[in-house]
Computed example of a mutant assay.
Amino acid sequence: MLLVVDDDSRVRTVVSWQLESEGYAVQVAADGATAWRRIVEQRPDLVVLDLSLPGLSGLDLLRRLRENGDRTPVVVLSGRSGEGDRILGLDLGADDYLVKPFSPGELAARVRSVLRRTGPAPVAPAPRTGLRIDPASREVELDGEPVPLTAREFDLLAFLAGHPRHVFTRAQLLEQVWSSSQAWQSEATVTEHVHRLRHKLGHRFLVTVRGVGYRLEP
């Protein structure tokens, strides 16, 4: 939410329309005291602030904010065009200073620029780690990278993944994955496919249980 503070209703209207057309939610205040309450209660993301306000002036409001450790971004929008006023406003902690008369489009651009500079740093997405198996697309990823598997390699991996930590003998895997219990279908076929999977996936997932068979560690 952005807060527009100006004692001129026409300025408030023009600025509000421009910022709302940019997709921002906007609240307004016509004097410094009301603006202070809005800032304290609503915590706006940025304040567009006129310096010539009745009661609590814009400069005093800005000074109070910074003295209280409030780092809410402030874009000053003022009819005071003198260099001294601009320097004072910036020295008091304004993030930008625009002189009236102004272009609403330029004000919106300055608001966007200040929000980019003062907003929280974007958080990089955590890298995808581990093993991901998608049965529908028959795709496998390891630590976010695709792993090309043959049809039978995928079938074996998917079956073991569907029964994590369950130990299967080679004969059981032949029957379940190859749909075969025939003697001519050697159990060495299972051993060879496990070896290929380990070559592609590493050794952290497929575990050999000596004298029994294999299991998949999730």
Results as ranks from 00 to 15, higher is better:
residue 85 D to I: 01
residue 152 R to A: 13
residue 112 R to Q: 04
residue 74 V to S: 03
residue 124 A to T: 11
residue 116 R to L: 14
residue 111 V to R: 04
residue 108 A to D: 03
residue 150 T to H: 01
residue 171 A to R: 12
residue 78 S to C: 13
residue 5 V to P: 01
residue 123 V to I: 11
residue 133 I to G: 07
residue 105 G to V: 06
residue 142 L to A: 10
residue 165 R to S: 03
residue 151 A to V: 02
residue 186 S to V: 07
residue 9 S to W: 10
residue 184 W to E: 09
residue 43 R to S: 01
residue 23 G to Q: 07
residue 79 G to F: 12
residue 105 G to F: 04
residue 144 G to I: 06
residue 70 D to L: 05
residue 43 R to E: 08
residue 201 L to F: 12
residue 7 D to L: 05
residue 4 V to K: 00
residue 48 V to H: 00
residue 165 R to W: 08
residue 207 V to N: 10
residue 182 Q to V: 11
residue 159 F to C: 07
residue 37 R to T: 12
residue 10 R to I: 13
residue 200 K to I: 05
residue 159 F to M: 09
residue 113 S to I: 04
residue 34 T to G: 05
residue 39 I to Y: 02
residue 54 P to R: 07
residue 122 P to A: 10
residue 116 R to P: 08
residue 56 L to S: 06
residue 204 R to W: 15
residue 51 L to Y: 04
residue 76 V to K: 02
residue 56 L to C: 11
residue 151 A to K: 00
residue 121 A to Q: 05
residue 63 R to K: 14
residue 72 T to K: 05
residue 78 S to A: 10
residue 27 Q to M: 06
residue 14 V to E: 15
residue 144 G to T: 11
residue 185 Q to F: 09
residue 108 A to L: 08
residue 190 V to N: 09
residue 4 V to L: 02
residue 130 G to E: 02
